[in-house]
Simulated assay, not measured.
Amino acid sequence: MPSLRKRLMALDPATVSTVLSLLPTILDQANKTIEKIKKGRRKDEPDIGGTMEPRDPAARIAELEMAAMQQAEAVKLLAEQHAITIEALRKEAARLDRRLRLMTAVAMTGVALGLGGLVIALNLLFR
């Protein structure tokens, strides 16, 4: 499996900049996920303090790290999907460019033949 650095270096700069522009949204989602986890923990704890043993800070940190890792995995998948989309768009743009060039050449040939036919018709008409 290639290292993250090699995979990032292989990405297009436009892809990287797009992912970086999406990073605040992703981090916002990560913060929301962390808040949901925290709220879930608060609901599990009784309202009257001292009756239940407080949660282990190491376990909470591990859970938050797991949530952060899941968000990082989501970012990685998003970047890969974005790279695939960009590649598909490039291929489609190249195909459309070739088609446009072909249609332009056909149109130019048609105009040239039409003008040639018009010149011949005018010469025959005015003889």
Rank of each mutant, 00 (worst) to 15 (best):
M103T: 00
A79S: 14
G114V: 05
Q71E: 14
A30Q: 11
A30V: 08
H82N: 13
Q71H: 08
G49W: 06
L125R: 13
P24V: 10
L125T: 12
E80F: 07
G116K: 01
P54M: 06
T109N: 00
I48E: 10
D56Q: 00
P24R: 07
A83S: 10
I120H: 04
L89V: 13
M52K: 15
I84K: 07
T33M: 14
S17Q: 14
V111Y: 11
V119T: 12
E53M: 13
P54N: 03
L11C: 15
I120S: 09
V19P: 00
A68P: 08
D28S: 15
V106A: 01
D56R: 00
I48K: 04
L20M: 15
A93L: 10
G110A: 13
L11K: 07
M69Y: 05
K6L: 04
V75P: 02
A93K: 08
T51C: 05
R7K: 15
L96E: 05
L27P: 03
M1C: 10
K43N: 09
P24I: 00
S17F: 07
L125S: 13
A68C: 13
V16K: 11
V19K: 02
T109L: 05
R7I: 06
I120M: 14
G114F: 01
M66P: 00
L77Y: 02
L113V: 10
A74N: 09
R127Y: 03
A68F: 09
M69A: 15
L125G: 10
G40C: 03
A107Y: 07
A121Y: 04
A58T: 05
M69S: 10
A14T: 10
R95V: 10
A10K: 06
M1A: 08
L125H: 11
R42T: 08
L27K: 13
